[in-house]
Amino acid sequence: MNRTVLRHFRRLPLYATVLVVCGLVLFPIYWMLLTSIRPTKYTMTYPPAFWPEEVRWTAYLELFQTIPIGTWLRNTFLVSLGTTVVCLTLSILGAYALSSFRWRGRMLFGFALLGTQMLPEALLVIPIFIIFRQLGLIDTLQGLVSVDAAFVVPIGVWILKGFFDTIPTEVAEAALVDGCSRMGVLWRIVLPLSLPALVAVAVVAFFEGWNEYMFASTFITTNTLKVATVGLATFIGELATPVELVLGAATVFTIAPVIFYLIMQRYIISGLTGGAVKG
């Protein structure tokens, strides 16, 4: 009895440190929620209190009436979904080519993909604009999907390749001997075994679509096609809209990815690191 108490006592610094770190990380999130539910007059004072003097949930109803956030979120969701589908399809093909075949140009292909991570979007935005105008993709959500997917496909290929590499050769060989085709091996063996990595890639792609700002702000001009990042960014530094509505909108925008992350956390961790860490 005494010994367990002592053991817990020794661990006190550890628990205290964990608590402090969690507190520091959570504080900005708490502050966002707090600001979104208290009336403006309490936010626009100094020093602000650390707890709500008065809770006003109706701000959340009000923001759906004053800010077209429903439309924004629908567009953002469509872009994210499209980005995820395109990215997963292409990444699977590319990763399988890199992982289970030896071919001339393999190294070049791999390094070229890695190299795309260095390309600054600011340099790309004008040439892509010109090409997309010719293709009729400007001011469309499909255009945003195309460009967002291009930036995450290389990451997707590398995550999946790392995971595919860990699948024992014997499994694939046995299937080949049994008359399974190479694509059959991919479909029936490699993919079912790579579920965590597929989830990880899906989440990375979904987040890219959800978060992308630069291309969305330069390519989309029609109001009904505006995505949430562009819409929310117009509130930065302006004071005409009440703060609680702005941060309420930010909260609504944040809920989906956070819940998505918390549910998928286990998969994401093993998927992201399953292959990469052994490097």
């Binding site: 900005p28 999130i29 502050w31 966002m32 987040f207 959800w210 978060n211 700002y213 949430a228 990042t229 929310l232 960014a233 509130f235 930065i236 702005v246 941060l247 930010a250 909260t251 925008f253 944040t254 990815p257």
Partner: peptide, 8 residues
């Protein structure tokens, strides 16, 4: 999302 982080 980065935009939400900037707003906060």
């Amino acid at each position: 999302p980065e935009v939400a982080a900037v707003l906060i």
